[in-house]
């Protein structure tokens, strides 16, 4: 690990101000992803601002009938919250499908959204990676790319976003609340948080330097059933090969793109009366593979209709 200056933030306003004035400053809260990457020197922050003890861990009802989840709320606390479990089951299911009990106890809501890809070529610092080292190339493109993206990838990067939680939040039409260094508070749909790789896969979100995620806001739950299904090589404690979150009429996919992938084509097809199988077929028209990840297209085409049917049955039963 490179040496860094460690500072503990006592309030959010000064945290974002300090972060903005120092190039290479990073917030740390749970640290489960950042420290992993710092040990490999993939992340080399000169200044670490510990926001873990800021009072932003509350989960509160909103006047609109939704929930406001503080960005410091741990994954475990969100998953265990009675309101989340009864009204946003897909979110609980997605969270407990990720990592391990130990990791979920430490990882925060904000940090989960900002975790970086698990692409092997990103992690191996001897390999080219445009995300880690812009301009160096993409090792995965013609490599052992079984885990790579089938939607929205570019010639510069085919990495996927690893979060399960974010997939559920995308299906739930969650919004992200942030605090800017200028003191400005803004909120926007979570689907606008992450970027597709394009030519600049190193730029992963639309956040400005120093901008801090303060909360995730859930609108009232959509009518209908909710379900999260994750497919992986081992039964637990491993990344997904593909996942799907269904919340009412909304469908989002995980482990298939550089961001949580809202399946708008599929949703549109369902809206116009298409069957679940037709819906996912419509979505997959936009999919492409790089060889070893081609199976994901088949996998998604089989997985998603089953999940949609299960959510419908649940919705009808409720």
């Amino acid at each position: 690990m490179r040496p860094f200056t460690y500072e503990r933030a006592l309030d959010a306003a000064s945290a974002v101000r300090v972060a903005a004035e120092t190039p290479g400053a990073k917030f740390i809260a749970g640290g489960t992803n950042l420290l992993d990457l710092m040990k490999l020197e993939i992340e080399q922050p000169a200044r670490l601002i510990d926001i873990g003890k800021l009072p932003m861990a509350a989960i509160e009802d909103t006047p609109e009938g939704g929930l406001r989840i503080g960005s410091m709320a741990t994954n475990s606390h969100v998953a265990a919250d009675a309101r989340v479990r009864s009204r946003y089951a897909v979110l609980t299911q997605a969270i407990v499908a990720g990592g391990s009990g130990q990791l979920r106890n430490k990882a925060t809501t904000g940090g989960n959204l900002l975790q970086r890809t698990r692409c092997a070529y990103f992690y191996d610092t001897t390999k080219p990676c445009n995300k880690r080292q812009p301009g160096s190339g993409c090792g995965a493109l013609e490599g052992l790319n079984r885990n790579s993206a089938i939607f929205g990838a570019s010639h510069a990067c085919i990495a996927t976003h690893p979060s399960d939680m974010a997939v559920a939040l995308a299906a739930l039409d969650a919004r992200v609340e942030t605090l800017s260094p200028s003191g400005k508070v803004r909120a926007f749909p979570i689907i606008e948080l992450h970027r597709l790789p394009g030519e600049t896969p190193d730029v992963e979100t639309h956040l400005i330097p120093g901008e801090l995620i303060t909360a995730v806001v859930l609108p009232p739950p959509p009518p209908g059933g909710q379900i999260y299904r994750k497919v992986r090589d081992r039964a637990s404690y491993s990344a997904g090969l593909a996942s799907v979150a269904v919340a009412g009429r909304n469908v989002a996919l995980g482990a298939v793109a550089h961001k949580p992938w809202r399946a708008v084509e599929a949703e549109g097809a369902l809206e116009s009366g298409g069957s679940p199988a037709e819906a996912i077929a419509a979505e997959l028209k936009g999919a492409s593979d790089n060889g070893r990840n081609g199976f994901k297209i088949n996998l998604v085409s089989r997985l998603v209709p089953v999940a949609i049917e299960a959510a419908r049955q649940q919705g009808n039963g409720a």
Partner: peptide
């Protein structure tokens, strides 16, 4: 794995100063 304030975490992914 250790317990911090009664909760299990991976102590390798946490800084002592935190």
């Amino acid at each position: 794995t250790v317990l911090v304030n009664g909760v299990r975490i991976n102590s390798c992914l946490s800084l002592a100063v935190m």
